[in-house]
Design a protein around this nucleic acid. Structure first.
Length: 197
DNA sequence: AGCTTGATTGCCT
DNA sequence: GGCAATCAAGCTA
């Protein structure tokens, strides 16, 4: 029952262009704890990586190409690319040439759909890596350049405090020491553990 | 060669 | 058993 002093639920806050119109290294840790749903399926972001245009490891390092065009498009849109010829990776575009790779999330919504897409019912294996995450959420090239807002996507910030781990990004041959990987400390849903501090 | 995954192997938590 | 390290498959640029 609602008490007289309450005026009803707060409007659900949603992350919009202003949230993303910043450097990726600022946005990436801020995305931890955010709920991400694609067509109603997803969970809580627990691992991200930042990429910037002056970063030799970034797709945007050598300027716009047909493949990375979305990285130079509107902030708050998706950048989706294929890796190793077989997996899709989902990024959020920040200010021009910046993007955040979504590496892992804690499944919360549509778990059965994700399990079917992934071919496993092991929750920890549904979204514990960028390729797995994209498969579980049904992300393909069709989402490349698309805005990350209703009805296709929902981004809802958390009101919980965040403890972040940081460390080197994964799988790089350049700038391997730059600590632009961020994770929810102690989460069992990370793609890999963070190196001991 | 590449911002990975899944299966395999080895080692403790 | 559960987790961490190792290795090769798989396609596009």
């Amino acid at each position: 029952m609602t008490k007289a002093t309450e005026v009803g639920p707060e409007p659900v806050p949603t992350l919009g262009p202003r949230f993303f119109m910043r450097p990726a290294v600022v946005v990436a840790p801020a995305l931890l704890g955010v709920t991400l749903l694609i067509n109603g399926v997803g969970g809580i972001i627990v691992e991200t990586e930042a990429y910037a245009p002056d970063d030799p490891a970034s797709h945007s390092f050598r300027g716009p190409t047909p493949r990375n065009q979305a990285m130079f498009g509107p902030p708050g849109h998706a950048y989706v690319y294929r890796i190793y010829g077989m997996h899709w990776c989902l990024n959020f575009v920040c200010e021009s040439g910046h993007a955040v790779l979504i590496r892992a999330l804690k499944p919360t919504t549509g778990i059965e759909i994700m399990a079917e897409r992934r071919g496993t019912t092991v929750t920890k294996q549904l979204c514990s890596g960028p390729g797995k995450l994209a498969q579980a959420l049904g992300v393909t090239k069709a989402l490349d350049g698309a805005p990350l807002c209703a009805p296709n996507a929902h981004l809802v910030p958390t009101d919980e405090p965040i403890n972040a781990s940081t460390g080197p990004r994964i799988g790089l041959s350049k700038a391997i020491e730059v600590p632009w990987r961020f994770g929810l400390m102690g989460s069992p849903f990370l793609s890999r553990p963070f190196p001991k501090s």
